[in-house]
Simulated assay, not measured.
Amino acid sequence: MSRLSGKNILITGASGGFGKELTKQLLKKGANLILTDMKAPETKPEFYLGESKPVTGKILGSFAADLSNEAGCNKAFQEATKINPNVDILVNNAGLAFMGRLLDVPSEKWKLILDVNLYAPIYLSRLFLPGMLERKHGQIVNLSSCAGITAPGELVYYSVSKFGIRALGEALDSGYRKHGVYTTNVYPFFADTNILKSEQFGTDKQKVVPSAILDTPQMVVRAIVRGMEKRKMHVFPGFTAKMLRFLTRLSPGFLRGMERLAQSFS
């Protein structure tokens, strides 16, 4: 039986690519799910499972919440605990991206990235953590990125948010693992989700990530779920994510050199 069976899990950004796949795979693990996004996600298990055989997991409920401000995060906490007062695992999956260098991205856009990608997980962690500590068990799962390991110039604000999430997770784990609350940080590479269609600034030609190097949401989420089950601190899904981690640790300047080389041919 999975360690996640019977656990009450809140997933933010549940209508996105990773969110839907997390819902599907966690239902198969027997988890009880609470789902949220800008619009209330679907609550019928068959929407996520398709033709899969019946599972023991349940969707306890869903609600709409805007996590771009503290009031929205407070509402998410209230709505989630109304559905079930004991949230065992918080999955900070909601996120967005805009491509552009430091001076290219408009202020309202880069501030939105930080609000949703970084400040919302901080607010939500502060809201749900006291209950976990009181029950002496819990887990916080943070979706960072390979952009939280190395920072491409055209993903500056996204990288700032993901480096911040990396720091948040490491600090949470350092401070609370001994009290029974575990933290898992996840660092996916580019995956085949709608975030690849994000708005781009500072260029007339839309840049496209080659499909040949994209990871699948299914593979990434399998790695996330395994990491949750094993209570791992760091999860690097797939070969590319693991290789990027290895290269940045082996030679921090190597990736910068490769980036400059690529730019010289663009």
Rank of each mutant, 00 (worst) to 15 (best):
E42W: 07
L103E: 15
V156D: 01
D88S: 08
T150C: 02
G17M: 12
C73Y: 03
R177T: 06
G19R: 11
A94M: 10
T23W: 05
L60T: 08
L10E: 13
S251G: 02
S125F: 03
Q78Y: 02
G257S: 05
G50E: 08
H234T: 01
L214I: 07
P41R: 03
A191H: 00
L172C: 04
S211Q: 15
N8E: 14
L261P: 05
K28S: 12
L250P: 08
K53R: 06
T183C: 13
L96R: 09
L244E: 05
M233E: 07
S264Q: 13
A167M: 05
K7D: 13
L118E: 02
V160Y: 02
A31N: 11
L22M: 14
M243D: 02
V116S: 00
G148L: 06
P106G: 06
F265R: 15
A71N: 13
E42K: 11
T12S: 14
T240P: 01
T184P: 00
L4T: 14
G257Q: 07
M219C: 04
D88Q: 09
G227H: 06
A31Y: 12
I113C: 00
A64M: 00
L67G: 04
G131E: 12
D204C: 03
R249G: 06
G95F: 10
H234L: 11
I9R: 13
P130Y: 07
G175S: 11
E259C: 00
E154G: 01
I195W: 05
L118N: 07
I34K: 01
L127P: 00
L214K: 12
K178D: 09
K58G: 04
T43W: 03
L155N: 06
Q218M: 02
F98R: 12
G238E: 10
Q206K: 14
R135Y: 07
S264D: 08
A14E: 12
P188C: 09
P85M: 09
N185S: 10
L35F: 04
R3S: 15
V220S: 10
G227I: 03
K197G: 01
A97F: 10
S251Y: 07
E134H: 11
E199Y: 04
G238P: 03
S52D: 15
L4Q: 13
I83Q: 04
L261T: 04
K53Q: 10
L4M: 14
E229I: 06
R231I: 09
Y48R: 09
L10S: 15
R3P: 11
P252K: 02
S251H: 07
I113Y: 03
